[in-house]
């Protein structure tokens, strides 16, 4: 009973005397143990990347996905409990689908992000529910105007709009790097790919298991549709990123 929350951390519907909901904070903690996940809004689209730990040498590469399509022009990358995130992914797909069949237009990213925030928040209100142990980065490109946008939805149900952000283990270091990268407002997804690969390799903790880099984008290269970054492009970017890191290390 006498944990860090002195008994106030057992249910999501009891505040602690200092006004905190521990369960939600613990859920956020679960996100921080996860591999880094980042997304950036480039000039011409959105780029997602995820650091996936290879749990076993016998694991088939590409077997677990952490970036999902939501509809033709939107996707979502995950940090935290993958199984929990599936609820959000499938809810997002339902909302997008239903919106389109009723209102004929594609759901505006702001609207979908807000609805997902509400959905996530519901799981922080009832004793019978457990908050989601995951944070999602939801990115979309408007099919008409080609304007990209990016949102973060955390276990509390908060919705933030970002130009670029990272979640998970290496988020602090990654965010600093993203800030430097986004100093160039004209950068395209294709140009950013190698830098993102570099960030992911840089923030990867040597103590952790080997990792696989998963990347998806919505940009001219993918005909403004959500698609996985082609393997050869990703491989080249990763190789180049490693070279750059090595060169930097040699300078020091």
């Amino acid at each position: 009973m006498a944990g860090t929350g002195a008994g106030y951390d057992l249910s999501v519907n009891t505040f602690s005397p200092d006004g905190r909901v521990y369960q939600v904070e613990y859920a956020q903690k679960a996100v921080e143990n996860s591999g880094t996940s980042l997304a950036i809004c480039c000039k011409d689209g959105v780029l997602f990347a995820v650091e996936k730990f290879m749990l076993s040498k016998m694991l088939v590469p590409g077997t677990i996905k952490r970036i999902f399509p939501i509809h033709r022009h939107a996707g979502m990358s995950i940090a935290g409990f993958l199984a929990d995130s599936r609820q959000i992914v499938s809810r997002a797909r339902e909302e997008a689908n239903q919106y389109k069949s009723v209102y004929t237009d594609e759901i505006p990213p702001e609207v979908l992000a807000e609805r997902l925030g509400n959905f996530t928040h519901l799981f922080t209100l009832y004793w019978s529910a457990r908050p989601f142990g995951c944070t999602v980065l939801f990115g979309a490109v408007d099919p008409e105007t080609k304007v990209p946008s990016l949102f973060q939805i955390d276990p509390a149900g908060l919705v933030y709009k970002f130009k670029g952000t990272a979640i998970g283990k290496g988020k602090q270091a990654a965010k600093t790097e993203i800030e430097k990268l986004m100093a160039n407002p004209d950068i395209t997804c294709e140009e950013a790919l190698v830098h993102v690969a570099k960030i992911m390799h840089k923030v990867h903790d040597e103590k952790d298991k080997d990792f696989e880099l998963e990347a998806s984008w919505i940009c001219p290269k993918s005909n403004y549709q959500f698609a996985a970054v082609p393997n050869d492009l990703l491989k080249t970017a990763e190789d180049k990123a490693k070279e750059m890191i090595e060169a930097e290390e040699n300078e020091d």
């Binding site: 009723v102 209102y103 004929t104 237009d105 505006p108 702001e110 609207v111």
Partner: peptide
């Protein structure tokens, strides 16, 4: 309701589609 959620005037096609439904 849709206009409130959208924060801007709805599309004509949206209105027509609601009638169609």
């Amino acid at each position: 309701q849709h206009a409130v959620e959208l924060g801007r005037p709805p599309a004509v096609k949206t209105c027509a589609n609601l009638f169609k439904i």
